[in-house]
């Protein structure tokens, strides 16, 4: 899965959490919680969605690494890459 696909999934889940937000105008470098008015339950729903959609179990200590959309995409991509050896990389969906 490349970064564009990850970004698409994360935006979809943010849309489920904050349906009234205009995600096309979301600054990918802005703090998600401020930009989308997300509280701790919303954020937990976001982390739960990342687990469900991407299979990444984000520990609480890593929550700061999901601060912005760009950070979250980079973080998820690095976790997915770390899970596969180069020879398997082509088979990852």
């Amino acid at each position: 899965m490349n970064e564009d696909e990850i970004r698409k999934i994360l935006l979809e889940e943010l849309g489920n959490i904050a349906p009234e937000a205009d995600l096309e105008k979301l600054d990918p470098a802005a703090g998600l919680r401020e930009a989308l008015d997300i509280d701790s339950i919303d954020f937990l729903n976001f982390v739960t969605a990342i687990h469900r959609r991407l299979g990444i179990n984000v520990p609480e200590l890593d929550y700061p690494k999901l601060f912005t959309l760009d950070c979250a995409v980079t973080y998820a991509a690095s976790k997915l890459t770390a899970r596969v050896t180069p020879s398997e990389a082509g088979a990852v969906n």
Partner: peptide, 17 residues
Amino acid sequence: LERANAERPPSERLLMA
């Protein structure tokens, strides 16, 4: 909470609330 949540998947984590 930190100890309890370290062992829980996101769907089962607890919040201060």
